[in-house]
């Protein structure tokens, strides 16, 4: 079966195909899921090299579980995000001080409102603000606003009720706003 034809096949069906020796299924899953786990890990850790390690380890665990995967019971992505979260938590515990590559980068106060930050700078500012959030709030925010998951799936990934997820998201967004508010002008959102 050509790789393109696999785009319509669900993750768990691909996983079963892989367990049965279909190398193309492994390739399709790699291309489909590695970017997701990599970016989730990056948003959680703020370090691209560590995120790569976590992504590889999470995918390896996926290959290992493939022969025992029970199709239809859970979403592969739910399982995978849970694995990534655990791996990130372990790393954050091991290296609590400065994990962000970008946090040390100072903002030049001389730039002022004239040199408003856009695009990549907004992304960088967000990443710095995310790093200052408590782990659970950060995880909920990343799953909701970066990975674009629904609250029920986030609740399943985090082992919480949907209400608890909503509460985490609300607190996380408030904290992010408060963090970014001082940089409103740099970010190009000065009061109009």
């Amino acid at each position: 079966m050509p790789l393109d034809a696999m785009s319509d096949i669900s993750d768990d069906a691909l996983l079963v195909l892989f367990a049965n020796g279909d190398r193309l299924a492994a390739r399709a899953l790699t291309l489909r899921l590695t970017p997701r786990v990599l970016n989730h890990a990056y948003r959680m850790l703020g370090n691209a090299a560590e995120a790569e390690d976590v992504a590889q380890e999470a995918m390896l665990r996926l290959w290992k579980i493939a022969p025992d995967w029970r199709q239809g019971e859970a979403l592969v992505t739910t399982w995978l995000y849970r694995v990534v979260a655990n791996l990130c938590t372990d790393r954050l515990r091991q290296a609590r001080p400065v994990t962000l590559e970008a946090t040390a980068e100072p903002v030049d106060p001389a730039q002022g409102p004239v040199a408003r930050l856009q695009g990549a700078d907004q992304e960088k500012a967000l990443q710095q603000a995310l790093a200052r959030l408590p782990d659970r709030q950060r995880q909920a925010i990343v799953l909701r606003h970066m990975d674009d998951l629904g609250n029920p799936q986030i609740a399943e990934i985090m082992g919480l009720s949907v209400e608890a997820v909503e509460s985490l998201l609300a607190r996380g967004k408030r904290a992010l706003s408060a963090d970014l508010i001082d940089r409103r002008e740099e970010l190009g959102f000065a009061d109009e």
């Binding site: 948003r43 695009g119 674009d148």
Partner: peptide, 21 residues
Amino acid sequence: DDIRALDACFEAARAAPLEPS
């Protein structure tokens, strides 16, 4: 304004994903 700023940051982050090497 805060919500708009935050949403713009999320959008900027989503638009520039880390590509796996």
